[in-house]
Nucleic acid binder design. Structure first.
Lengths: 251, 251
DNA sequence: ACCTGAACACCGTTCAAGT
DNA sequence: ACCTGAACACCGTTCAAGT
């Protein structure tokens, strides 16, 4: 994505953070709407990514949006990769966490975490792809991780399987949500609805003999909307996974 | 990635294919090593992607590799997106398929498919990310899909759950492999080994309180190499998933 | 401390022209 | 049928300079 030479290490905001004062004037100084700081840049980047997708979010375009010269952004962020890491962490901050004190079953808490992660990512379709591109170890991502760990810690699984269980759930949800949000973007790009575009592809694929499904998507039509089918797939698979981990154990 | 305007639909080789004669002279005519055709372009693209990663594989760079002007490539492919779809399908052709006539348990065949997909994708670390970016409905991808469908068709699952089961397995493997190959690339980019880089990140993260894992990766060290731990995670999760789908059913 | 202008080294792709 | 050259409209980023 960025023009990294293969030989030079990719930087990460989180590994070599900027001094926290950088771009932060005193609390009283934010005089005009025009004054720049890191939060404002990141917020604008998120808005731009949401509205027009990854392809349209360039440093130059973002600067124009902020009424400023491209190079002024580099005072606040080291480079575009860092900015994307910050944007990803910003949306990670929107993920709703279950109340761990409520005494719910750990499986339900884990299901809730999976669902709210998916929900947040679907709201920012560019974001899920960042997980495959950037380190995501910012404070908001860590808040989410800590919560997820606390949840499996209440499971009956032996301790050495805790991280396997976490990975299993979130790698699945990552895969599911990647595909789901990709179909959304296909829809937008093609000017059709996501489901219309899917129908078109499915139709084109169905001409080949013996084909019933495309890359993880489905073509059953039992009176359900595609959204309902996706939700059903999501829930059912999580049930399978959670049931599988608990086979032969007292829950 | 490509400079798509949001309003114009993304093309796909598979949806609007070139006439198959394009770039295919008669079988006898491939006179010099210098003569161009679509297969040769795709093969060179795969080699370049393998050797130097997505960032270094530009149309211009690829043309230089082929000793030709950038624009001559456009005689054989519509644009870069199409070329990437072709490259992805080319590596999909490397995936080893189980022998369906061997009469193995459907679960073992499914595990074999998951393993060989993972194996092929790890051999071309840029490839797994293409699944989140491009349609993958080329002939080789379809060959793989057809095989996977034939395998679940032998399962005891009710028919309306077949595609859910397929999606479950492959979305999980997609998530797992995305993360696994991303860490490989981090290693390469940082000039360290993948595991060294992981240790560095884990160390930096461990300074925050209450943290034990990063985004699906692990830090148990029970005398196993990280590769062994990854393999164990992969197998264990597939076992959970397969066990979960079969709960309460005769296998 | 913060922002700008000019410049560098790239991109993907169009178009008209060559052979 | 196949390939080229020049050009367009972009990129991310460096650097020296301004205030």
């Amino acid at each position: 994505m960025a023009a990294n030479r293969a030989s030079q290490p990719r930087s990460s905001v989180w590994l070599t953070p900027r001094p926290p004062t950088r771009g932060r004037r005193g609390a009283d100084s934010g005089s005009g709407a025009g004054s720049l700081d890191r939060e404002k840049i990141v917020a604008t980047a998120v808005r731009l990514l949401d509205a027009e997708g990854t392809a349209q979010c360039s440093m130059r375009r973002l600067a124009a949006e902020l009424g400023v010269t491209p190079m002024s952004l580099y005072w606040y962020v080291n480079n575009k990769d860092d900015l994307m890491e910050l944007a990803l962490d910003a949306v990670a901050g929107e993920i709703a966490l279950p109340d761990l004190e409520a005494g719910n079953d750990w499986r339900d808490d884990l299901r809730a975490l999976a669902a709210s992660w998916r929900h947040t990512m679907i709201g920012h379709p560019w974001a899920i792809r960042c997980y495959g591109e950037y380190l995501n170890i910012g404070p908001q991502s860590m808040r989410f991780s800590r919560c997820a760990q606390a949840v499996v810690a209440r499971s009956p699984l032996p301790e050495e399987e805790h991280s396997t269980a976490l990975s299993a759930v979130f790698q699945y949800v990552y895969g599911f949500t990647s595909m789901e949000s990709r179909w959304q973007e296909y829809g937008r790009e093609s000017g059709r609805s996501p489901d219309e575009f899917f129908e078109e592809v499915a139709g084109s694929v169905a001409q080949a003999p013996g084909i019933k499904a495309t890359g993880g998507m489905i073509e059953r039509h039992s009176g359900l909307t595609m959204q309902q089918m996706r939700d059903l797939d999501f829930d059912r698979t999580l049930d399978w996974l959670l049931a599988g981990m608990c086979v032969g154990r007292r829950s």
